[in-house]
Design a protein around this nucleic acid. Structure first.
Length: 428
RNA sequence: GGAGAGAUGGCAGAGUGGUCGAAUGCGCCGGACUCGAAAUCCGGUAUGCGGUUAUACCGCAUCGAGGGUUCGAAUCCCUCUCUCUCCGCCA
């Protein structure tokens, strides 16, 4: 969430920055809440101080064996007003916090202002687009010919937006994840993690999925009436490692890589990407997460994005890097780069990685801090990015490495993970 | 699933209604002593929030979480969560 101090001291500035996201901040509503909060809180604390002082007097008088009825009478007079103020304050703070928690992060000044994905700005392109002297097939058809992608059976087992993979294709999927993990741990200095796929509401709140985006999550009821949430990304369990912690400064930065399935309800995307495995309820992703000193956060974003790009380059997949405009960024992000991989069958680039810097937006609500050089606790900065989405990478490999006879060449870096296999042969 | 024990500061650990935000020890920081270090001695050392722009000062809240009793709760009552030990079951 945003820094409350910033809201109080530079409300107009915050409103102006939020406006670039297409978000109109109700300045008057905030000011009214803040004024009431200040008055109510001051009053309540004064009454509490009074009560505490009088109660202390009672104790002192009693220990000397003196009469306490006068003091008791005075403190009794405070009771009703104090109670009323405490109740009103609690209610007010709840509304105040809900208001602030509902505000998205401010875009970094380098972020282009725009309304929608139309206004995103391309930063650069990498790679040469493949040319085919035959009719290109999409991954659904390629996968079917390889006998490895089976959507019909997945529908029977679960329903729409699920995939069943078999044989060499399932192995290729696994190989991609292994390759990504090995590259990030071996060459980029990330620590590999295995993390829970079911998390509690506090964790979802910490990374900002809750309270605003509950409908995008799957959940599992628990016997006690609460629920587990299925992670929509490894960002959630991994970033929450530092929730409520004061990380020793010498341990920074923390660089984690974690391969998990991701679960998304995709509510509101009916009819979008219904063919194939582009948009699924369940998909694997290798996620990079960094916990940084705020002053290093922007450099870290460039580095992290570069680490994700490395995977695409080693796989020889053409892609472009774009910077999301203010209106297209996620809720907590201050700046986001998307990597889009070339998909020949769609004749376009499609998102395969999203790398974001949250500054202290997530860490503030998570109370994730470190001791700075002055010995003071300071809020950390958090970043994350896909390194990469495994399912979509598989799609990209199938489409970019397809051959006229229906076979698919295996990128060289993956062959060690495929037992040396160089090509997947069609069975149809 | 059964039986029992427990949750207090960075750690260990005291505290069963009244100057307790909390003894003591360890750790850490500063100082003294020393050529320097060790040892020893002295002092300091939780977090969040508010007054308030402030590393000054004052106040509020916090002893697993939430509620209750009370003028006053770490301490008493209720509910919940988590941890540990033993037994059973189990990938």
């Amino acid at each position: 969430m945003l820094d409350v101090q910033l809201l109080r001291s530079r409300l107009d500035f915050v409103a102006e920055r939020l406006a670039t996201r297409g978000m109109s901040l109700d300045v008057a509503a905030f000011q009214a809440l803040e004024d009431e909060r200040k008055e109510r809180q001051t009053r309540t604390q004064d009454l509490q101080a009074r009560r505490n002082a009088l109660s202390k007097q009672v104790g002192q008088l009693k220990s000397k064996g003196e009469d306490t009825t006068a003091v008791l009478a005075e403190v009794a007079g405070l009771g009703d007003e104090l109670k009323a103020n405490e109740v009103a304050l609690a209610d007010l703070l709840e509304r105040f916090n809900a208001f602030v928690a509902g505000l998205p992060n401010l875009p970094h000044e380098s972020v282009p202002v725009g309304k929608s994905e139309e206004d995103n700005v391309e930063v650069r392109r990498w790679g040469t687009l493949p040319s085919f002297d035959f009719q290109v097939r999409d991954h659904v058809e390629i996968g079917a010919r390889l006998g490895g992608l089976d959507f019909e059976t997945a529908v029977k087992i679960s329903g729409a937006r699920f995939t069943l993979m078999k044989g060499g294709l399932a192995r290729l999927h696994r190989a991609l994840a292994q390759f990504m993990l090995d590259t990030h741990t071996g060459e980029h200095g990330y620590t590999e993690l295995y993390a829970p796929y079911l998390v509690n509401a506090d964790s979802m709140y910490g990374t900002g999925q809750l309270p605003k985006f509950e409908e995008e999550l799957f959940s599992v009821p628990k016997a006690d009436g609460s629920k587990f949430y299925l992670i929509p990304t490894a960002e959630v369990p991994v970033t929450n490692i530092v929730r409520g912690e004061i990380v020793p400064a010498e341990q920074l930065p923390l660089k984690f890589v974690c391969h998990t399935p991701c679960f998304r309800s995709e509510a509101g995307s009916y009819g979008k990407d219904t063919r194939g495995m582009i948009r699924q309820h369940q998909f694997d992703k290798v996620e990079l997460v960094r916990i940084e000193r705020p002053e290093n956060a922007w450099e870290a974003l460039e580095e992290l994005t570069g680490h994700a790009e490395t995977i695409l380059q080693k796989l020889g997949l053409p892609y472009r890097k774009i910077v999301l405009c203010s209106g297209d960024m996620g809720f907590g992000s201050a700046k986001t780069y998307d990597l889009e991989v070339w998909l020949p069958a769609q004749n376009t680039y499609r998102e395969i990685s999203s790398c974001s810097c949250f500054e202290s937006f997530q860490a503030r609500r998570m109370q994730a801090r470190f001791k700075n050089a002055q010995g003071k606790n300071e809020t950390l900065a958090t970043l994350n990015g896909s390194g990469l989405a495994v399912g979509r990478t598989l799609v990209a490999v199938l489409e970019n490495y397809q051959q006229a006879d229906g076979s698919v060449h295996i990128p060289e870096v993956l062959r060690p993970y495929m037992g040396g296999l160089m090509v997947l042969e069609p069975v149809l």
